[in-house]
Design a protein around this nucleic acid. Structure first.
Length: 678
DNA sequence: CTATTAGATGTTTTT
DNA sequence: CATCTAATAG
């Protein structure tokens, strides 16, 4: 008989971790500070549950990011296989992907078509924009919120489970005057989604909640699990809490893990309130706090703790480590962003000389464009890098075009995709596209049907009819019989649309290889429906992500926003653009809660570092890098870098500019075109 | 009506 | 700089 007390995954834990992993009660709250072995503990708990006789498939593991889900399930599986080789699969994934699976499974019960499609946030924005235009709101003299803002409001309302009036008053006061119009838009938006057989991300959670609330289905789902574990509980929103509550309504045990100091998704209607109030909301909660940090050196933790202490409230935690020593973090004040970029490059390369691979180093920042200049500099110096959450494939117009086609193959009622596709045709703009779409409907209010194409084709300009027919042909073959493989269908669809892409974009030829990459990825998919919805739910987070796993021998620097860096760690962390107004972002400094959240984000960034931490405050930065107008501001250090915090840093004296390839003092080349225009 | 271009405008963070 | 609007040419 297997004796769990001797298992390495238990004996290697410290006493708090072990207490958490082997807690016998039904309600467990693990407050795990940054770097305290949260994942290890959670995986050990899964392994322990298995040794207690809980079948793997009756364990549900919920996370926020696909990356976390993957790592957790993978690590747990390794432990599982070691202790009970024939255990089944743990049920796990992000909230949204689990919702997706369940909602598909119970689509009929929910009054949805089994073939519903998914709207990614980009599509959702487009649809909202469409509705907004239909209601004639776009031309109002008074500034009416844009599509992106509409989606923010809508999403926040749904996720917080709060009436829209309250959401407007609290977070969008400048839109309050349009309250009634907004409600009308949101109602139409919801209706239109249904008509087209589409669900947006928020719907997935909403419908899961609906399932859990039903006496019959909800109970059956809940009965399917003996234990539910939720990671990053500080980032759940009201809707998710409601779902979790539903999952545990009958018998399932519940373990939640999180750190209120790292709650950074308030803008997505998440609130640390849920983890703080967990003990009251779930009676008989046992609480374990993990404070021993295994990640960072003492001087780094000193900075992190000092920043955390600027904030009162929440659960008291103070990270400590027995790893004494380590270099002081550095705080540099480069003259401008250019010098900042040069400095980062130099430090990164130096660290690599010392044996720290590029991939064990990361540059973190508050907003995506903070790394613009650095990216240029890295490219110039041929330092390879990968940016998380950077250029996203799925947002490139031509990729969206192709995705629209794939979605139509699965769901011809998807008007949004029709419009997008039709506008690719030469001579077809918004008006004609709508006309063509209308003639695809059997009746005024009906849904577009592929069979009616012979009628619709007459509205296509003569020059484009042939190209259009090819696309429709491919759609027919993919939709109707679907006897052949997914790969063959996608191939055909791609072939049919390639000429359109080539023609429609001035740089069309360059864009075609992107489509081929997509086709390649689709070959492995079960069917088009799965391929499209998985892709929406889990978009490739970087260019290389999509090209397949990077070569093992490839080395590259990581660039990431602080948000995307959550849960990750690197030997060296470079936090750039840490000036007030940027970090904290000006937009967030309006409310005390906004500032507090920025501080937690700052804390998240600091605590990613294992051995060395470098913070950069450029003294001069450009608001907008335009050629004509070099407006700049003079930056002050982030307000989180208070005097007492700064004392915990080493402050290198700025060097005088060094001549290098880019700068050669005393040697000036004048370029002039005056002679040409004399 | 569509396509193209010039000019204004405005911004976080992401499942 | 990217995205949206307005104006104009085809």
């Amino acid at each position: 008989m297997f004796d769990p007390s001797s298992a390495p995954w238990l004996t290697e834990l410290n006493s708090e971790q072990r207490a958490a992993a082997t807690h016998g009660g039904d309600r467990l709250l693990i407050l795990a500070g940054a770097g305290t072995g949260k994942t290890t503990t959670l995986c050990a708990r899964v392994a322990w549950l298995l040794t207690q006789g809980v079948p793997a498939e009756r364990i549900l593991l919920l996370t926020f990011t696909r990356r976390a889900a993957g790592e957790m399930v993978h690590r747990a599986r390794i432990l599982v296989e070691r202790s009970s080789p024939d255990a089944g699969r743990i049920f796990g994934g992000t909230f949204h992907s689990v919702a997706h699976r369940l909602v598909r499974l119970h689509a009929a019960t929910l009054g949805l078509e089994t073939g519903f499609g998914l709207l990614d946030p980009g599509d959702a924005r487009e649809l909202l924009d469409m509705v907004r235009q239909e209601q004639g709101r776009a031309e109002e003299p008074k500034r009416f919120p844009r599509a992106g803002t509409l989606l923010d409001i809508y999403s926040r309302t749904v996720n917080a489970q709060t009436p829209v009036d309250e959401v407007l008053a609290e977070f969008f006061p400048w839109c309050e005057e349009h309250g009634e119009a907004l409600k009308e838009i949101f109602r139409s938006y919801h209706r239109r989604k249904r008509e087209m057989g589409l669900l947006d991300f928020d719907d997935l959670l909403l419908y899961w909640q609906g399932l859990m609330r039903s006496d019959v289905v909800g109970r059956r789902i809940a009965d399917g699990f003996d234990h539910v574990l939720v990671d990053e509980y500080q980032d759940v929103n009201g809707l998710q809490v409601d779902i979790v509550r539903g999952l545990c309504q009958t018998r399932a045990g519940l373990t939640v893990v999180g750190d209120d100091l790292q709650a950074i998704y308030g803008f997505r209607a998440a609130s640390a309130r849920h983890i703080l109030e967990f003990p009251e909301q779930f009676p008989d909660t046992h609480r374990v706090t993990l404070e021993q940090n295994y990640r960072s050196t003492t001087p780094i933790l000193a900075v992190a703790n000092a920043v955390a202490e600027q904030d009162r409230g929440g659960f008291r935690k103070r990270l400590w480590t027995d790893r004494e020593g380590g270099a002081m973090p550095s705080l540099a004040f480069p003259r401008d962003e250019q010098e900042q970029a040069a400095l980062v490059c130099r430090q990164v390369l130096e660290a690599r000389e010392q044996g720290s691979e590029l991939r064990r180093q990361a540059v973190l920042f508050r907003t995506n464009h903070d790394s613009d200049l650095l990216e240029l500099e890295l490219t110039r110096r041929r330092i390879p890098f990968v940016k998380y959450g950077g250029l996203r494939y799925l947002e490139a117009a031509h990729v969206k075009d192709f995705m629209a086609l794939l979605r139509l193959a699965d769901n011809p009622a998807d008007e949004l995709s029709w419009l997008r596709l039709l506008k690719l045709l030469d001579g077809v703009g918004p008006t004609r596209a709508r006309g063509i779409l209308d003639s695809l409907r059997p009746s005024e209010a009906g849904r577009p049907e592929l069979e009616r194409w012979p009628v619709a084709i007459e509205k296509v300009p003569a020059g484009s009819q042939q190209a259009a027919a090819a696309v429709i042909g491919a759609l027919r073959e993919a939709g109707a019989g679907a006897a052949d493989s997914t790969g063959a269908q996608v191939d055909r669809l791609c072939t049919s649309v390639t000429p359109l892409i080539r023609l429609h974009y001035p740089d069309g030829a360059v864009r075609v290889p992107d489509l081929e990459r997509l086709v390649l990825a689709a070959h492995g998919a079960r069917d088009i429906r799965h391929f499209v919805s998985e892709l929406a739910l889990d978009p490739p987070s970087s260019v290389s992500d999509f090209a397949g796993p990077p070569q093992l021998d490839e080395d590259y620097l990581i660039l990431s926003t602080a948000h995307s860096a959550k849960g990750l760690e690197w030997d060296a962390v470079h936090l750039i653009a840490a000036y007030d107004g940027n970090f904290p972002a000006d937009m967030s400094t309006g409310t005390p809660e906004g500032i507090t959240e920025e501080r937690r984000l700052f804390y998240v960034a600091l605590t990613r570092a294992r051995r060395s931490l470098h913070v950069y405050v450029p003294e001069r930065f450009y608001y907008r890098p335009t050629v004509r107008d070099q407006r700049h501001g003079y930056g002050k250090a982030s307000r989180f870098l208070t005097e007492s915090v700064q004392e915990l840093f080493d402050m290198p004296v700025p060097e005088s500019p060094r001549p290098d390839e880019a700068r050669s003092p005393g040697h000036r080349i004048d370029v002039s075109v005056d002679a040409l225009f004399a």
